Amino acid sequence: MTYAIETRALTKRYGRHTALDGMDLAVETGSVFGVIGPNGAGKTTAMRLLLDIIRPTSGDATVLGESPRAGGAALRRRIGFLPGELMLEGRVTGRALLKHYADISGSVPEGRIDELAERLGLDLSRHVRTLSKGNKQKLGLVQAFMHEPALLVLDEPTSGLDPLVQQEFLSMVREAQNRGQTVFLSSHVLSEIQSAADQVAVLRRGRVVKVGDVATLRASAVRRVVIEFTDVSADRIRTALGALPQLDHLAVVDGEVVHVTGTVEGHINSLVKAIAPFHVVDLRVEEQDLESSVITFYSSEAGDEN
């Protein structure tokens, strides 16, 4: 088995603040690997270390078989990078800027830039300084993907994009994987990682608290449920649902329509069986934001709050 990225006890400190604390990761070549966590978890720091933008305090990393520091410009030409805080300014057009990046990154297949721009709905004739945040993000995606690098490092890649463009981005990721490229991306949006990644690392406070496949992540996530019943008393509903061990924060409001809210950890099969005998007029299962669901679960599992 070959790895596009390997880190061993990778650590970055700024004075007394530890931005990344002993990260151990192994990202298989040709895979899509997601890193998730709230802002400040260490996602961006990890990516900057892999690209030699900043240097580690301790530990080491290997990217495409080389040390980021020793690999230099030749290694970076094999990587497509989209930073989380994309700063694009200037009086040049998007096309001119991409030509400049192509001269740096190396060979770009003929027609590739126009193909990507059309897929993302990007007008390359407009000056960069006039573009909205979303269109600048599209421009950043084109420059990362256009030379078909061996490794794509994408920090919050869908920030500022509308849902249709986000779906097109996910298609681009799948196509890159089919070509044998490796994709390493970060996000705080759980659904985005679930749609794109094979493996996931959960970061909190600079530490990796869990690494696993997407199926495991999905099964352990916490969801908010909202249910409405008619033709039944609140007491009967409270009795039926109160015994479910995975249902937490249960609230039952009596009335002509009995309104129930709560959170469910993991699979909802037991909940569905429990409500089946009653007249359900509405059922919503809502994925919570990452920090209040997956991060909370993994943190307690890893003793992060001790």
Rank of each mutant, 00 (worst) to 15 (best):
D289F: 04
I268D: 14
F81G: 03
E256Q: 07
P245N: 03
S233E: 13
I237E: 08
A221D: 11
F184W: 00
L116P: 06
E148L: 03
A276F: 07
A46H: 12
V27C: 02
R204I: 09
G262F: 10
L151D: 02
P163E: 12
A302L: 01
R112M: 13
V27S: 01
G84I: 00
Q199I: 05
E286Y: 09
D21S: 12
S270G: 10
L25K: 10
S31L: 00
V200L: 06
L20Y: 06
Q181T: 09
E287L: 15
Y3E: 08
L120Y: 10
Y298I: 07
A61Q: 06
Q246D: 15
L75Y: 01
Y14R: 12
V189D: 05
E89A: 11
V165P: 06
E265S: 13
V108C: 14
L50E: 04
I53M: 12
M47N: 04
L139G: 15
G90D: 10
S125K: 07
S58G: 15
A4K: 00
T7W: 03
R126D: 07
E156W: 03
A176M: 08
N306H: 00
P38R: 14
K133L: 09
K12P: 07
R76C: 00
T261F: 05
E110T: 15
S171K: 15
L250I: 13
G30R: 02
T239P: 12
L82P: 01
F229H: 08
E256R: 09
A74S: 01
V165Q: 10
G180H: 02
V32I: 10
F229K: 11
M47D: 03
D114R: 11
Y14S: 14
V209W: 02
G94E: 13
R55A: 15
S105L: 15
V209Y: 03
L75W: 01
L98M: 14
R204Q: 08
T239R: 05
A73F: 10
